[in-house]
C-alpha cells in the first residue's frame, strides 16, 4: 500500500444495503479476512456464517458511516479473534496454506508453487505478529484498505492505525531481509 492510498479520503458513504446485496458484495472479503487472520480452513465456513448472522442482526444499526465492506471487515476481524481464542493454534501446528480454501487453483506449476510459497511465508509472518498489528497489516497489505477505512473497521483512531502499520511493516521488512540472508 502506498502513502497516497493510505491518506485518501473515504468515498461517499453509500446507503444501507439489503442483506442480499451486502452478502454478495462483501462475503468474498470477509472470507479472505478470516483466512488471513488465521481462522483454520475447516472453520472458515462457520466463521463466515457467524460474520453474516451478526451482520444480518445489526444491519438495522448500520448507518452508512462507513462503506459496507469496511463494516463487514470489522465484524470479520472480531469473529476471527473469537475463533483464534477459542481454538488457539499450537506452536507446533503447521499452517494450512495448502488447504483448498486458502490457495487458489490454476496458474502454471512453477508460478503456483512460487505463489503458494509466498502465501505460506506471509501467513507465517502474520501469525507471529501481535494481534493489533496483525489486524492492521492484513487489512492494509492483503486487503489493501486505506488507513481511514481500517480505523473505521477496527474502531481505533487513525493515528493508531498508522502507528501499528508502521511497526508491522518494519517487522515485515526485517523479516523479508532475514529470509534473503538465509538464502
Amino acid at each position: 500500500m502506498h502513502a497516497r492510498s493510505l491518506a485518501q479520503p473515504l468515498a461517499q458513504a453509500p446507503e444501507r444495503p439489503d442483506f442480499d446485496a451486502l452478502y454478495e458484495s462483501t462475503s468474498e472479503l470477509a472470507f479472505r479476512v478470516l483466512g488471513a487472520m488465521g481462522v483454520r480452513d475447516h472453520e472458515l465456513d462457520d466463521a463466515l456464517q457467524d460474520v453474516f448472522v451478526i451482520a444480518h442482526r445489526r444491519l438495522g444499526d448500520f448507518r452508512g458511516a462507513s462503506r459496507p465492506s469496511t463494516w463487514v471487515a470489522g465484524i470479520a476481524v472480531r469473529v476471527a479473534h473469537d475463533y483464534r481464542r477459542r481454538h488457539a493454534r499450537k506452536p507446533s501446528e503447521p499452517l494450512e496454506p495448502h488447504a483448498p480454501g486458502l490457495v487458489a487453483a490454476g496458474n502454471g506449476p512453477d508460478t503456483s508453487a512460487m505463489r503458494t510459497e509466498a502465501l505460506r511465508a506471509v501467513m507465517s509472518f502474520i501469525e507471529g505478529l501481535p494481534e493489533t498489528q496483525r489486524d492492521v497489516f492484513v487489512l492494509a497489505e492483503l486487503e489493501q484498505q486505506t488507513a481511514p477505512e481500517i480505523a473505521q473497521a477496527l474502531g481505533v483512531p487513525l493515528n493508531t492505525v498508522y502507528s501499528r502499520l508502521r511497526l508491522a511493516r518494519a517487522h515485515f521488512e526485517a523479516w523479508v531481509a532475514s529470509r534473503g540472508d538465509e538464502r
Binding site: H2, A36, D45, V103, T116, L119, E173
Partner: peptide
C-alpha cells in the same frame, strides 16, 4: 508512510494472488 521495499511488495503481491476465491457453491451454502 514509507513504501515497502521491492522484495516485500513482491512477496505480498504473490501472496495476494494466490489466495483462493470463495467459490459459488460455498458462498451460497
Amino acid at each position: 508512510m514509507k513504501d515497502l521495499s521491492h522484495d516485500a511488495e513482491a512477496l505480498l503481491k504473490a501472496a495476494r494472488a494466490q489466495r483462493s476465491p470463495l467459490d459459488r457453491r460455498r458462498r451460497e451454502a
